[in-house]
């Protein structure tokens, strides 16, 4: 039911619109790349566009809308806990994002590779599986963060907050790198300013740059923290006390 509630008429345009955008981005790449690498191109379009946009559009107001419309109160009258409610919301949001990744990321990538690539087309199953597993983990992480934000603020603020965090982390990281390169602690802190562990891990794997142990650990830690914050926040939401 939660899944069905997400797929409003407007929501159908999200994967279709994103799919059109990714196709527009992929075609010039296919025309100039000597090797059309499915996994690398998937990483480029999914991590930079599909995953964050799909997660933001489906999950920006995922909890706040339920609170505003009184749906959460209606649900809590029934014998379900807030934790169960949260898990159902997470599962529904994740399913929607997965469908968007397939429609807007995977299908255009295969189609452009098949019809437009001028060079050699490379479909290597290992990197493709790794890349898509990491997209899904990154999607879960962003969903977790947006659920957390959404317990406290309305949807549009959550998207702005996530974007502002990303930009601030990049700016502060560059500043620390240029001014405090000699401080080992600040350089360590710089690597943890934004939860980009899965993204860095994927870059390392596709670039054959070794085993991304600390990057994966950072990704899983951030994922865990986002879920922990989401579980904590959902218990803080005030609804009509007689309903629970």
């Amino acid at each position: 039911m939660e899944f069905r509630r997400q797929w409003t008429v407007a929501a159908f345009f999200i994967p279709i619109g994103l799919g059109a955008l990714t196709t527009i981005m992929l075609v010039p790449m296919a025309l100039i790349q000597p090797v059309y690498d499915f996994a690398r191109n998937a990483a480029q379009i999914n991590l930079s566009m599909v995953v964050p946009f799909a997660a933001a559009l489906f999950c920006g107001g995922i909890i706040s809308i339920d609170v505003k419309e009184g749906w959460l109160r209606t649900l809590l009258i029934r014998p379900i806990t807030r934790q169960q409610y949260l898990l159902i919301k997470l599962a529904a949001a994740f399913s929607s994002v997965v469908i968007t990744i397939v429609v807007a990321g995977v299908i255009p990538n295969i189609a452009v590779g098949a019809f437009f690539a001028k060079g050699v087309v490379r479909y290597e199953i290992g990197p493709i599986l790794v890349a898509h597993t990491l997209f899904l983990l990154q999607a879960l992480l962003i969903i977790g963060l947006l659920v957390f934000f959404s317990c406290w603020m309305p949807g549009i603020f959550n998207m702005v907050l996530l974007a502002a965090w990303y930009i601030a982390a990049a700016s502060i990281g560059s500043y620390l790198q240029s001014r405090f390169w000699s401080s080992e602690w600040l350089m360590l802190l710089r690597d943890f300013l934004f939860p980009s562990g899965f993204t860095s891990a994927l870059e390392m794997i596709l670039g054959n740059a070794g085993t991304p142990t600390s990057e994966l650990a950072w990704g899983f830690a951030a994922l865990g923290f986002s879920f922990a914050l989401a579980f904590w926040s959902v218990t803080r939401i005030e609804v009509d006390k007689s309903s629970e």
Binding site: Q83, A228, F231, W232, E244
Partner: peptide, 11 residues
């Protein structure tokens, strides 16, 4: 409804 067991363990 205010059980924080999941949040604590995951954290």
């Amino acid at each position: 409804q205010r059980d924080l067991t999941y949040a604590k363990w995951i954290g």
